[in-house]
Nucleic acid binder design. Structure first.
Lengths: 143, 143
DNA sequence: CCGGCTTTCTTGAACGAGTCAAGTCTTGCT
DNA sequence: AGCAAGACTTGACTCGTTCAAGAAAGCCGG
């Protein structure tokens, strides 16, 4: 039980330590890339009385303070993961929506050296790979 | 009037040539990165009787046949552009949501050489840059 | 040029993710 | 323990998008 670790994370981000927050952190750790609904479901296994709004609030607060990372592939609801700060990217399965981590191919911030940027000041480059996951590749015409 | 060009595009994609479709193509050409609502509004300037559903259908059909490209930055509704097939990317302004094109920094498909992909077969790499546009940078606390 | 088959469009309802707002409960500090 | 700010609950609501059924138009063969 390393809830104490989560507790420190929260405190270091100036966030109060509450049962819903710990439950959300555990849920996200257990289910990487889970969308809000799944996080809510996972949270309610341990804390049945947490409202959906609380989960939205908590995920928002955690995202704002950088404790979790939010990703939002086109056509999917927001998803969350604990793995932050290592500049990794994601592969998304076109047929089932599954998401997996991909370590950055380049090693350093990829393509962050965008050339003509139209006056924009760029602070992050996000790479999303699209393809087909192993399961969907072997089961072509599912559902 | 190069509607004839759009007409050819449609025919070559096995799509019937209709007034709504031509209007949508013109609207997307005129307003790159416009979201569905803006496209609908632009379409109705020329064709006031087009339903919102028609626009969704048309944009869907055009996207499926590769005549337009759909992008969906996190936190934004779907946006469309005519510029396809040249592997360019996008910068999104964090504060106003504005989108601009960025030519691929690497030249060739960037980072498409994803290493460990967990069994995924990758067919596309999409890069989204996040930052602040010139206007928002100069007008810090707008709105 | 016309019928007829198919695709596309219109109308109207529905859905899901996410947000807003008001009031109550907790946490962390003193 | 007691207080103030922050966090949670409840419930309504918005917005983008999709579903469904029927009417209308495009395209092909004759």
């Amino acid at each position: 039980m390393d809830d104490s670790e989560f507790e420190h994370l929260l405190r270091s981000a100036d966030l109060r330590v509450t049962r819903p927050r710990l439950a959300v952190l555990r849920a996200v750790r257990r289910h990487p890339h889970a969308d809000t609904g799944s996080v809510l479901a996972a949270v309610r296994v341990e804390e049945p009385n947490v409202s959906h709004q609380a989960v939205y609030d908590v995920l928002g607060a955690l995202t704002d303070s950088g404790l979790v990372r939010r990703i939002q592939p086109a056509g999917s609801a927001a998803r969350y993961e604990l793995r932050v700060g290592d500049n990794h990217h994601h592969v998304v399965c076109r047929s089932c929506g599954r998401v997996a981590d991909v370590d950055c191919a380049v090693g350093h911030r990829p393509c962050l050296t965008a050339s003509a940027a139209d006056g924009f000041v760029i602070d992050e480059a996000e790479v999303t790979y699209w393809g087909t996951c192993a399961e969907c590749a072997s089961a072509p015409a599912a559902t």
